[in-house]
């Protein structure tokens, strides 16, 4: 009986999240800009681009690892005893934030590709700057929530505070 409402809630939340991300993408994509058209990138700009892509890749990798760590830890602890609702919330929050970080990183990457396609270059222009900031900060908060989730579980005896957990 309880599985169906939970499943529907999940899909409603997922749809809301997708709508929110699309709305944000639309908002960021509609920010006005005016950048100089370039014939080719200078050495400094190439170095800037290289550094940026490196950081983008690093954050993407770390966010993927954070998702893996959250899932692995939740499954591992959940196998021993059902997770407490607070822990479930933390795991979901961490997972979601890491997912948003991945999305923001992908969006920023797409914007950079689009920018180069349109023959201008400015990594500080708003359509790249805000997604890049979102990628970093959502990842950071995700890691903090994950750390709290893990710390809370490791310092608590197994089963304590769990719903329906073994004493």
């Amino acid at each position: 009986m309880s599985a169906r409402p939970r499943s529907s809630h999940f899909y409603v939340a997922l749809a809301a999240l997708v709508a929110l991300l699309c709305g944000l993408e639309s908002l960021v994509g509609s920010l006005p800009f005016a950048e100089q058209m370039l014939a080719k990138l200078s050495d400094f700009q190439l170095k800037e681009l290289e550094t940026y892509i490196e950081m983008n890749k690093l954050l993407t990798t770390l966010a993927t690892l954070a998702i893996g760590a959250t899932t692995g830890f939740a499954v591992n602890r959940g196998a021993a005893a059902p997770l407490a609702p607070a822990d479930v919330r933390k795991a979901v929050a961490s997972w979601t934030l890491s997912g948003v970080s991945l999305y923001a990183g992908h969006f920023a990457y797409q914007q950079v590709i689009w920018m180069l396609d349109q023959r201008f270059f400015n990594l500080f222009y708003p359509r790249v700057w805000w997604p890049t900031q979102a990628q970093f900060w959502t990842f950071l908060v995700s890691v903090i929530v994950l750390a709290d989730f893990i710390h809370g579980n490791l310092t608590r005896p197994a089963g304590a505070g769990s719903v329906g957990g073994r004493p």
Binding site: P32, F33, A34, E35, Q36, M37, Q118
Partner: peptide, 19 residues
């Protein structure tokens, strides 16, 4: 749009709309 953009003569890529 009240932001310095260098010197003339230049071509800018701009978002459609009012500038």
């Amino acid at each position: 749009d009240n932001q310095p953009k260098g010197f003339t003569n230049r071509v800018f890529v701009v978002s459609p709309g009012s500038h």
